[in-house]
Amino acid sequence: MLIAILMSGLAVGAVYALIGVTYNVMFSASRVMSFTAGQLGMLGGVLGAAFIGVLGLPAILGFILTLAVCALVGVLTEIIAVRPVLNSLEQHLYVLSTLAVALLIQQFVAIEWSTEPQPFPRLLGVGGGGPTDEKFWLPMLACAATVAGLEFLYRRTLVGRAFLAIAEDNFAARALGLPERNLRMGSYALAGVIGGVAGFASGQLLLAFFANGAMLNFYGFIPVALGGLGNNRGAIISGLLLGVFQQAANFTFGGVFASVAVFTVFIVVLLAAPQGLFGMPPQRRV
């Protein structure tokens, strides 16, 4: 029982954490919180099921295609919904433009794919439905791989350092001659890939379902809010904790009360610490 709670908790927690990282990657590059983060996760599941389950492509090819499409969606988001409103960040138009794009994606999938949850094909056939089933450890593996990959990217590669530079100080980075626009598009592509990985790896757990987008938007945002904007470490820790907490409440009290409990904890923590548990102090206003 305990093992089951822990495994399913860490599995969904890993997905929330990855969506949190998706938010963060987009935020770092553009100071924009995008409603498309959860939809990218949803697309990962739906596209995986479509490519492998419906079209019958080999799993690895389906995986690569899924990530490619998600990266493309990320770049399109940047071009359509983010770049045009970057000049007026203080008006928060990005909340509306990214919400619009997120709704477009969600509705398109609902109409063209299905409004019912569809099965996601087995990838490796490891584990027989028990706590060691691949549907539990695949998301965790994806999370660990993403953390390692991001760490390598940010610490060891020039492009990664450039990402960090524009996240740290956009103006200074541009003054140094960094191609800010291309790096921003690159970040959105990267966010698309991370969201896609999260959705693909959790496909068997969450199924290929259009409504997962809105769900992941909310549960993926909680780790960001608690961990502090742009703080990936905070997002991963908070995401995993959130997953375990939610599943524990789920097993002990039932689904509705788990949702209410998560929501209440979220609101209380946010009101007590609006900058998140690992966040930075507010800036000057006048």
């Binding site: 919400l99 769900m215 909310f218 809010a225 929501f263 946010l270 609006p274």
Partner: peptide, 20 residues
């Protein structure tokens, strides 16, 4: 206390909870 996007998310979360 919360900034725009945060507030939008809390209202979204509340809507989900009420339906559930």
């Amino acid at each position: 206390r919360l900034r725009t996007f945060y507030f939008a998310m809390t209202t979204l979360g509340f809507a989900t909870i009420v339906t559930q």
